[in-house]
């Protein structure tokens, strides 16, 4: 994803569909294939809540991005629909919503792929400690 980290390439007049970037992101693609979704792991544990505890945090992140102007909600939703159709359709929600959000943030250069991969590693080791 070469456009990551380079928002100046994005044409502000381009429509969301034109701007939509369907390039595979290695990190997200691995999670799509191997990540374990809440819908798969919660029922065997006897947990009935259909949403994982982090869902509210994810929603708040989306709202903050909208409120601060970094990623308007309508753009995010259109991108989410398109990405779900093209790439992440086999992942249930809210994991799909998360993958689509991160994908969109990468394509818009809000965050970079390398720094995200680094941060995922840091968080993973912190939670395993």
């Amino acid at each position: 994803m070469s456009s990551a980290g380079n928002p100046s390439e994005a044409d502000p007049k381009a429509t969301e569909a034109q701007r939509q970037d369907f390039r595979r992101v290695a990190l997200l693609d691995a999670m799509r294939r191997e990540g374990r979704a809440w819908a798969d792991i919660a029922p065997p544990c006897g947990v009935a809540d259909p949403e994982p505890p982090w869902k509210t945090c994810l929603d708040a992140t989306c709202e903050c991005l909208d409120a601060g102007g970094a990623l308007p909600s309508l753009d995010r939703r259109l991108a989410e629909d398109a990405l779900a159709e093209a790439m992440y359709g086999d992942v249930p929600n809210p994991e799909r919503q998360l993958l689509a959000l991160v994908h969109t943030m990468l394509s818009r250069g809000l965050i970079g792929e390398a720094e995200l991969a680094r941060r995922v590693g840091i968080v993973r080791s912190r939670l395993a400690a």
């Binding site: 990540g35 792991i41 994810l58 992140t61 601060g68 965050i111």
Partner: peptide, 30 residues
């Protein structure tokens, strides 16, 4: 409870922390 920490839970935290570091929003706003 679900003891397993999934890739998605980690990704949610990672992207939120990065967004805060980059000033897209603050911890308080979140």
């Amino acid at each position: 409870m679900v003891a397993e920490v999934t890739d998605f839970e980690i990704l949610e935290i990672a992207v939120r922390e990065l967004a805060i570091e980059k000033g897209l929003f603050t911890v308080d706003e979140h």
